[in-house]
Amino acid sequence: MKRSVLSRAAETIILLVVCFVALFPIVWMFLTAFKNPRDAYDISLNFQPTLQNFVTIFSNPWNLGHALLNSTIVAGATVLLSIPAAALAAYSFSRFRMKARKSLFFAVISTQFVPAVVIVLPFFLMFRSLGLLDTRIALVVVNVAIVTPFVIWMIKGFIDAIPLDSEEAAMMDGASRLRVIRDIVLPMAAPGIITSAIFSFILTWNEFLFALILTRRHATTLPVALTNFRTERGDLWELMSAAGVLITVPIFLLALVIQKHFTRGMTAGAVK
Protein backbone atom coordinates (compact mmCIF):
# COMPACT_ATOMS: atom_id res chain seq x y z
CA MET A 1 0.00 0.00 0.00
CA LYS A 2 1.26 3.47 -0.80
CA ARG A 3 1.52 5.77 2.16
CA SER A 4 1.05 9.48 1.92
CA VAL A 5 4.07 11.76 1.75
CA LEU A 6 2.87 13.38 4.94
CA SER A 7 2.88 10.20 7.01
CA ARG A 8 6.28 9.25 5.64
CA ALA A 9 7.66 12.67 6.56
CA ALA A 10 6.15 12.48 10.04
CA GLU A 11 7.68 9.06 10.55
CA THR A 12 11.10 10.26 9.45
CA ILE A 13 10.92 13.27 11.76
CA ILE A 14 9.88 11.17 14.73
CA LEU A 15 12.69 8.70 14.15
CA LEU A 16 15.21 11.53 13.84
CA VAL A 17 13.97 12.95 17.14
CA VAL A 18 14.25 9.50 18.75
CA CYS A 19 17.83 9.15 17.53
CA PHE A 20 18.61 12.64 18.78
CA VAL A 21 17.17 11.97 22.23
CA ALA A 22 18.96 8.64 22.46
CA LEU A 23 22.29 10.01 21.31
CA PHE A 24 22.38 13.47 22.81
CA PRO A 25 23.48 12.68 26.38
CA ILE A 26 26.14 10.34 25.03
CA VAL A 27 27.42 12.79 22.44
CA TRP A 28 27.49 15.57 24.99
CA MET A 29 29.53 13.45 27.36
CA PHE A 30 32.00 12.64 24.57
CA LEU A 31 32.32 16.30 23.64
CA THR A 32 32.87 17.34 27.24
CA ALA A 33 35.56 14.73 27.61
CA PHE A 34 37.62 16.63 25.03
CA LYS A 35 37.08 20.08 26.48
CA ASN A 36 39.47 21.85 28.79
CA PRO A 37 38.02 22.67 32.25
CA ARG A 38 37.01 26.19 31.27
CA ASP A 39 35.07 25.11 28.14
CA ALA A 40 33.35 22.32 30.06
CA TYR A 41 31.27 24.86 31.91
CA ASP A 42 30.00 26.43 28.71
CA ILE A 43 27.50 24.91 26.33
CA SER A 44 29.15 26.38 23.27
CA LEU A 45 30.30 23.91 20.64
CA ASN A 46 33.17 26.20 19.71
CA PHE A 47 36.11 24.85 21.67
CA GLN A 48 39.66 23.66 21.25
CA PRO A 49 39.65 19.86 21.66
CA THR A 50 42.22 18.46 24.05
CA LEU A 51 43.31 15.01 25.24
CA GLN A 52 44.50 16.41 28.55
CA ASN A 53 41.54 14.99 30.51
CA PHE A 54 42.48 11.45 29.55
CA VAL A 55 46.03 12.02 30.65
CA THR A 56 44.76 13.47 33.94
CA ILE A 57 42.42 10.63 34.86
CA PHE A 58 45.18 8.07 34.45
CA SER A 59 47.63 9.97 36.63
CA ASN A 60 47.73 10.90 40.32
CA PRO A 61 45.54 11.29 42.31
CA TRP A 62 42.86 9.64 40.12
CA ASN A 63 44.78 6.63 38.78
CA LEU A 64 41.80 5.30 36.85
CA GLY A 65 44.03 2.66 35.30
CA HIS A 66 43.67 0.69 38.50
CA ALA A 67 39.87 0.85 38.41
CA LEU A 68 39.97 -0.10 34.74
CA LEU A 69 42.01 -3.17 35.62
CA ASN A 70 39.60 -4.05 38.44
CA SER A 71 36.58 -3.69 36.19
CA THR A 72 38.16 -5.88 33.52
CA ILE A 73 39.21 -8.60 35.93
CA VAL A 74 35.92 -8.66 37.83
CA ALA A 75 33.77 -8.72 34.70
CA GLY A 76 36.02 -11.27 33.00
CA ALA A 77 36.12 -13.62 35.97
CA THR A 78 32.36 -13.35 36.45
CA VAL A 79 31.78 -14.38 32.84
CA LEU A 80 34.25 -17.26 33.05
CA LEU A 81 32.62 -18.63 36.18
CA SER A 82 28.98 -18.16 35.31
CA ILE A 83 28.82 -19.09 31.62
CA PRO A 84 29.93 -22.76 31.79
CA ALA A 85 27.68 -23.51 34.76
CA ALA A 86 24.80 -21.64 33.16
CA ALA A 87 25.22 -23.37 29.78
CA LEU A 88 24.97 -26.84 31.34
CA ALA A 89 21.97 -25.88 33.44
CA ALA A 90 20.30 -24.21 30.47
CA TYR A 91 20.73 -27.37 28.41
CA SER A 92 19.16 -29.46 31.14
CA PHE A 93 16.22 -27.07 31.51
CA SER A 94 15.75 -26.89 27.78
CA ARG A 95 15.88 -30.57 26.91
CA PHE A 96 14.73 -32.69 29.82
CA ARG A 97 11.17 -33.01 31.03
CA MET A 98 12.02 -33.74 34.64
CA LYS A 99 9.27 -33.70 37.21
CA ALA A 100 10.75 -30.94 39.33
CA ARG A 101 11.73 -28.92 36.27
CA LYS A 102 9.10 -26.24 36.59
CA SER A 103 9.71 -25.55 40.25
CA LEU A 104 13.50 -25.65 39.87
CA PHE A 105 13.36 -23.25 36.96
CA PHE A 106 10.99 -21.04 38.89
CA ALA A 107 13.42 -21.04 41.81
CA VAL A 108 16.34 -20.03 39.62
CA ILE A 109 14.42 -17.36 37.79
CA SER A 110 12.87 -15.79 40.86
CA THR A 111 16.31 -15.21 42.36
CA GLN A 112 16.81 -12.83 39.47
CA PHE A 113 14.11 -10.63 40.93
CA VAL A 114 15.61 -10.44 44.39
CA PRO A 115 16.82 -6.88 44.84
CA ALA A 116 20.59 -6.60 44.96
CA VAL A 117 20.36 -4.49 48.08
CA VAL A 118 18.95 -7.49 49.98
CA ILE A 119 21.79 -9.75 48.99
CA VAL A 120 24.48 -7.20 49.62
CA LEU A 121 23.68 -6.78 53.32
CA PRO A 122 24.59 -10.34 54.38
CA PHE A 123 27.46 -10.39 51.90
CA PHE A 124 28.86 -7.24 53.44
CA LEU A 125 28.74 -8.85 56.89
CA MET A 126 30.14 -12.11 55.62
CA PHE A 127 33.01 -10.53 53.71
CA ARG A 128 33.74 -8.32 56.67
CA SER A 129 34.22 -11.28 58.97
CA LEU A 130 36.26 -13.08 56.28
CA GLY A 131 38.39 -9.98 55.70
CA LEU A 132 37.37 -9.93 52.06
CA LEU A 133 35.93 -6.42 51.95
CA ASP A 134 37.48 -4.29 49.24
CA THR A 135 38.73 -7.29 47.25
CA ARG A 136 37.99 -8.35 43.70
CA ILE A 137 37.06 -11.83 44.92
CA ALA A 138 34.14 -10.39 46.85
CA LEU A 139 32.90 -8.53 43.80
CA VAL A 140 33.18 -11.58 41.56
CA VAL A 141 31.19 -13.68 44.02
CA VAL A 142 28.24 -11.30 44.22
CA ASN A 143 28.25 -10.58 40.50
CA VAL A 144 28.18 -14.28 39.71
CA ALA A 145 25.13 -14.49 41.97
CA ILE A 146 23.28 -11.88 39.98
CA VAL A 147 24.44 -12.90 36.52
CA THR A 148 24.08 -16.70 36.61
CA PRO A 149 20.27 -17.01 36.78
CA PHE A 150 19.95 -14.37 34.10
CA VAL A 151 22.37 -16.15 31.80
CA ILE A 152 20.70 -19.53 32.36
CA TRP A 153 17.51 -17.96 31.18
CA MET A 154 19.13 -16.36 28.18
CA ILE A 155 21.10 -19.41 27.01
CA LYS A 156 18.03 -21.59 27.49
CA GLY A 157 16.25 -19.33 25.03
CA PHE A 158 19.00 -19.93 22.49
CA ILE A 159 19.11 -23.70 23.04
CA ASP A 160 15.33 -23.93 22.78
CA ALA A 161 15.67 -22.51 19.29
CA ILE A 162 18.04 -25.27 18.16
CA PRO A 163 16.08 -28.07 16.50
CA LEU A 164 16.24 -31.43 18.26
CA ASP A 165 16.90 -33.32 15.05
CA SER A 166 20.66 -32.88 14.94
CA GLU A 167 20.98 -33.97 18.56
CA GLU A 168 18.90 -37.07 18.04
CA ALA A 169 20.80 -37.85 14.88
CA ALA A 170 24.05 -37.73 16.85
CA MET A 171 22.61 -40.07 19.48
CA MET A 172 21.61 -42.51 16.74
CA ASP A 173 25.09 -42.14 15.27
CA GLY A 174 26.41 -43.45 18.57
CA ALA A 175 27.13 -40.37 20.68
CA SER A 176 26.53 -40.31 24.43
CA ARG A 177 24.59 -37.40 25.91
CA LEU A 178 27.75 -35.62 27.05
CA ARG A 179 29.32 -36.18 23.66
CA VAL A 180 26.21 -34.71 22.03
CA ILE A 181 26.52 -31.63 24.21
CA ARG A 182 30.20 -31.24 23.33
CA ASP A 183 30.10 -32.04 19.61
CA ILE A 184 26.69 -30.76 18.58
CA VAL A 185 24.95 -28.49 21.08
CA LEU A 186 27.80 -26.25 22.17
CA PRO A 187 29.01 -25.51 18.63
CA MET A 188 25.46 -24.86 17.45
CA ALA A 189 24.68 -22.67 20.45
CA ALA A 190 28.01 -20.85 20.25
CA PRO A 191 26.63 -17.56 18.89
CA GLY A 192 24.04 -17.53 21.66
CA ILE A 193 26.55 -18.42 24.33
CA ILE A 194 28.95 -15.73 23.15
CA THR A 195 26.12 -13.23 23.11
CA SER A 196 25.18 -14.21 26.65
CA ALA A 197 28.81 -13.94 27.72
CA ILE A 198 29.11 -10.43 26.33
CA PHE A 199 25.78 -9.55 27.87
CA SER A 200 26.85 -10.64 31.32
CA PHE A 201 30.18 -8.88 30.84
CA ILE A 202 28.25 -5.67 30.19
CA LEU A 203 26.01 -6.20 33.23
CA THR A 204 28.98 -6.77 35.50
CA TRP A 205 31.00 -3.95 33.99
CA ASN A 206 28.17 -1.49 34.64
CA GLU A 207 27.37 -2.84 38.09
CA PHE A 208 27.39 -0.12 40.72
CA LEU A 209 25.67 -1.07 43.97
CA PHE A 210 27.93 -3.99 44.98
CA ALA A 211 31.06 -2.11 44.05
CA LEU A 212 29.89 0.92 45.99
CA ILE A 213 29.26 -1.01 49.18
CA LEU A 214 31.88 -3.75 49.08
CA THR A 215 34.90 -1.75 47.94
CA ARG A 216 36.71 1.28 49.22
CA ARG A 217 40.03 1.80 47.45
CA HIS A 218 41.77 -1.34 46.21
CA ALA A 219 38.98 -3.02 44.32
CA THR A 220 36.88 -0.07 43.13
CA THR A 221 35.51 -0.42 39.62
CA LEU A 222 35.01 2.29 37.05
CA PRO A 223 31.37 3.23 37.83
CA VAL A 224 32.26 3.79 41.49
CA ALA A 225 35.46 5.61 40.59
CA LEU A 226 33.21 8.12 38.83
CA THR A 227 32.00 9.36 42.19
CA ASN A 228 35.57 10.33 43.11
CA PHE A 229 35.33 13.28 40.77
CA ARG A 230 32.74 14.82 43.07
CA THR A 231 35.15 16.81 45.23
CA GLU A 232 34.95 19.63 47.75
CA ARG A 233 35.80 21.98 44.90
CA GLY A 234 32.66 20.75 43.12
CA ASP A 235 32.08 18.25 40.36
CA LEU A 236 34.92 17.93 37.87
CA TRP A 237 32.73 17.41 34.83
CA GLU A 238 35.42 17.24 32.17
CA LEU A 239 37.19 14.44 34.09
CA MET A 240 33.92 12.64 34.83
CA SER A 241 33.11 12.77 31.13
CA ALA A 242 36.52 11.41 30.20
CA ALA A 243 35.99 8.58 32.68
CA GLY A 244 32.51 8.08 31.22
CA VAL A 245 34.02 7.67 27.77
CA LEU A 246 36.40 5.13 29.22
CA ILE A 247 33.47 3.18 30.68
CA THR A 248 31.23 3.32 27.64
CA VAL A 249 33.57 2.80 24.69
CA PRO A 250 34.41 -0.87 25.37
CA ILE A 251 30.79 -1.65 26.15
CA PHE A 252 29.49 0.11 23.06
CA LEU A 253 31.99 -1.74 20.90
CA LEU A 254 30.96 -5.09 22.39
CA ALA A 255 27.28 -4.26 22.06
CA LEU A 256 27.66 -3.22 18.42
CA VAL A 257 29.73 -6.28 17.54
CA ILE A 258 26.91 -8.53 18.65
CA GLN A 259 24.07 -6.16 17.84
CA LYS A 260 22.14 -8.59 15.67
CA HIS A 261 22.14 -11.23 18.39
CA PHE A 262 22.01 -8.60 21.09
CA THR A 263 18.47 -7.47 20.39
CA ARG A 264 17.34 -11.07 20.06
CA GLY A 265 19.21 -12.21 23.14
CA MET A 266 17.87 -9.40 25.26
CA THR A 267 14.35 -10.55 24.61
CA ALA A 268 14.88 -14.26 24.01
CA GLY A 269 14.62 -15.15 27.65
CA ALA A 270 11.85 -12.80 28.47
CA VAL A 271 9.30 -13.29 25.73
CA LYS A 272 9.86 -16.72 24.27
Binding site: P163, S166, E168, A169, M188, A190
Partner: peptide, 11 residues
Protein backbone atom coordinates in the same frame (compact mmCIF):
# COMPACT_ATOMS: atom_id res chain seq x y z
CA UNK B 1 18.15 -43.22 11.48
CA UNK B 2 17.29 -40.74 8.75
CA UNK B 3 15.22 -37.83 10.02
CA UNK B 4 12.47 -35.91 8.31
CA UNK B 5 14.43 -32.66 8.66
CA UNK B 6 17.68 -34.57 8.05
CA UNK B 7 19.24 -33.63 11.41
CA UNK B 8 22.52 -32.64 9.79
CA UNK B 9 25.28 -30.98 11.81
CA UNK B 10 25.30 -27.45 10.41
CA UNK B 11 28.75 -26.65 11.80
Amino acid sequence: MVFQNYGLYPH
